[in-house]
Amino acid sequence: MNALEARNVTKQYATHKALDSVSITIPEKTIYGLLGPNGAGKTTLIRIINQIISAEAGSIEIFGEPLQQKHVGIIGYLPEERGLYKKMKVGEQLLYLAQLKGLSRKDALARIKVWLEKFEVKDWWNKKVEDLSKGMAQKVQFISTVMHEPRLIILDEPFSGFDPVNAQLITEKILELKEMGSTIIFSTHRMETVESLCDHIALINKSKKILEGAKKQVKAQYKSNTFTIEHKGTFVVPGRYELVSQSITEDDHYSTVIKAPLGTTGNEVIRNIIELTEVHGFQEKLPTMADIFIGLVKGEGDEALKKHLLEV
């Protein structure tokens, strides 16, 4: 089953289209990266999923059901702009937010206790938020997002404002939640996060979805069949390969990048060149998410992307 399926979602503001017929499919129990430059429409899409605003056109299904008000209880949302009631105590605040999500007072109390223990901050219950440091407040905010154990968790730039230790802690908790069966939507610019955590990605640019799929497939789709060969002594590149670049690393050691015809496997390339030179290293150049992101956003098209990927 899919955790979320958006079909042709369109949001029109007075002066511009924030979302132009965007369709995405988020498989259950995955970490889904929602990528795109600032102002692309990610936040608009997230707000629509959270039913904070509504779309002009299109439909959204959540766990197989049309999205309704009752679903707010199974969604946890961490907005990019964090905020809590400054004058309220941590415990009261979490209790209030959990009850707004639909938990009973008793359940909420039990869950909050568990989560405060998980983060080793049991003694914060009576602390006012204004007395917490920024990092501490972020932890409280994260707890408020996940304490009702939502099936769908939406995190907008979750790591901004965290020091590396806490970022690591949050990463662990996110993976734990995934293990427990939650689906997580990540909206982020940080490509290293996407690279290490996401299973699926979608790229939104200028209100349109321009790319979606499993991370592996996306990478395979955009691989340019280029290979880097570390070798000793020169050789003549066979006619079916195209020489992209060649550089001397030391003495007569070279690093050569060649482009093979579509469908050529690494094995074939090795077989072809192993007779010609002394091969020290061989690697297929796979595009990083950052490469794909920048290429697509800059060039707005597959051709431009491929060109970009060759350049890097």
Binding site: V72, R82, K101, G102
Partner: peptide, 9 residues
């Protein structure tokens, strides 16, 4: 900024 959290509920 608490408002965005609240209106998601």
């Amino acid at each position: 900024k608490i408002v965005e959290v609240i209106v998601s509920s």
